[in-house]
Write a protein that binds this DNA or RNA. Sequence first.
DNA 1: CGCGGGTTTGATGATGCTCAAGCCCGGTGG
DNA 2: CCACCGGGCTTGAGCATCATCAAACCCGCG
Lengths: 198, 198
Amino acid sequence: MEKHHIELLRKTLLEKADILDGDFEKIRTAFRPRFIKKKKDLLRVGEVCKFHAFVVKGFMRSFSVDHKGADHVIQIAYEGHWVGDLYSIFTGKPSNLCIEAVEDTLVLMIESKRLEELYLEVPILERYFRKTLLSAYVNTLQRLNSTLSEPAEARYLKLIEDQPGLLRRAPLSHIASYLGITPESLSRIRKHLHANKL
Amino acid sequence: MEKHHIELLRKTLLEKADILDGDFEKIRTAFRPRFIKKKKDLLRVGEVCKFHAFVVKGFMRSFSVDHKGADHVIQIAYEGHWVGDLYSIFTGKPSNLCIEAVEDTLVLMIESKRLEELYLEVPILERYFRKTLLSAYVNTLQRLNSTLSEPAEARYLKLIEDQPGLLRRAPLSHIASYLGITPESLSRIRKHLHANKL
DNA sequence: CGCGGGTTTGATGATGCTCAAGCCCGGTGG
DNA sequence: CCACCGGGCTTGAGCATCATCAAACCCGCG
């Protein structure tokens, strides 16, 4: 567990909550590093998710698979983000999601049970996760709103505005899935945008 | 502020956090009741949202309005739910949402600033809202997943499964909007379902 | 009554999907 | 070094879903 990975965790926590150095030490020791090779899974459909994972390097996606095998990217996570199936963690039921490394990825993992204990030992940690959940929730609401109200081309333009890095790191098929369309459709949207001078 | 309204608030908080009676007294006094007549707004597009509202009786919806006047129901809230534009509260920017009473509605309102102070006075309250955000977030992710992966008819069937009461309380046009389709489409879906013996 | 909002129905068209073929390019083995 | 393979991306044709516009209908309420 190298120093700058821990520093990214510390820095990320401090952005949303004032955590004392002593408390951070308690937190730090609850995490263990794990490396996931590109295209390997951190969680598979049907497993019960018992961890939160903090991405220190790399890029992951979580996706569902519908009744006829098509996958749908629900979330993406790169450096400084969290992954895990909150539904499964919270209910204890098997996950409907698969969490997969898009690139070679290093995460710091904590047992969800251990995190619950940490809330008692370090109450301010609850503030960090409340705020983190808040922004994740707000982002998802906006994405939902966008999906309900705008055609795919507008959503694509918004995405390259908000997440320019994504285009370089994720293949077209993942981006299409994230937008809720097929790779073919996204390819045509790109073609159409190029035709109009970009 | 009548007794059973306060009791609903107490009961709701206790479902997710062990709040002492004394602490609940502090919390209680931070809320003010407000009545919103059917079709009247609690928040309008362009205003900065500075409150959280707890619905004790009635039914509200929050919706966005797209560039050509169509509205899109983002959230619904009835007894025991919260409403407010978290994006606006958190960023201090004007809201893109309108929050409107679908029925005559009574809410208990708290200033978002006052709530931040309460977190310091009653730390366990942070747990309640962390958990509440968690379920709201998980629900929204599932709704997003459903929107991305299923056709409107399947989403409608899932909705009447999950929220049977909604059909009795909300007009068809709101339900259509919540599902991300037009009232005409939902009407046709219903017709089609009736034809197939339901 | 008759007005008016909400819902239904119909005809037409846009958006995005499916299936299928071809293309591009990077990696591998001869 | 090149020839081949394979995955990802593009392109095309036809189709399904859902939107749009417009008209008729239903029903509660003044």
